[in-house]
Amino acid sequence: MASVNYALKEIVCKIVYYGPGMCGKTTNLQHIHQHTQPDKRGNMVSLATPGERTLFFDFLPLEATQVHGFRTKFQLYTVPGQVMYNSTRKLVLRGVDGVIFVCDSQWEKTRENLESFRNLIENLGSYGYSLETTPYVVQYNKRDLPNIAPVEYLRYLINPRQVPDFEAIAIHGEGVFEALSEICSLVLANITHKQKVGIA
């Protein structure tokens, strides 16, 4: 859950990158880490296997521009995408403020994308959250590969309600900051709205 510190004039929000295994979640974070000024980010913490598969999570703290006089800080997390790490994914989702759902655009990963998305809904539900109240965006990654599904079909499958979505090639950085900027903006707007109506 976002924390708003009026004394320090600081807002800290948690963003989680979710998706099936090997879809590019960690690649997103690595690109952000490599292309953000060092004084505006912290160290990236990665707990991964020797084969570079995320074992627990990746973590990267970021600071963005001030909004309404408040410093905005974002804690970016990724989850392990493999099916057997569901407990870890659930733990990482605790207190989430926004989600970037990363799809692997390859045809052979389509079913995994869908199952991962349903898993996200289920895990959010275990905390009483839902995608109805938790901002999320969809990123269709690996758009540079040859055997990929058209965005229209992926959108039909994963994003029929047409929340903001982005095509991406995370390994080259395309679509990475666009998706991040959008979700952060949505999260802040959501927090501001909740503050106004007295929910938060």
Binding site: I32, H35, K40, A64, T65, V67, F177, S181, S185
Partner: peptide
Amino acid sequence: TDKVVFART
């Protein structure tokens, strides 16, 4: 109303 911008290199 406010777009979040990150300090990119």
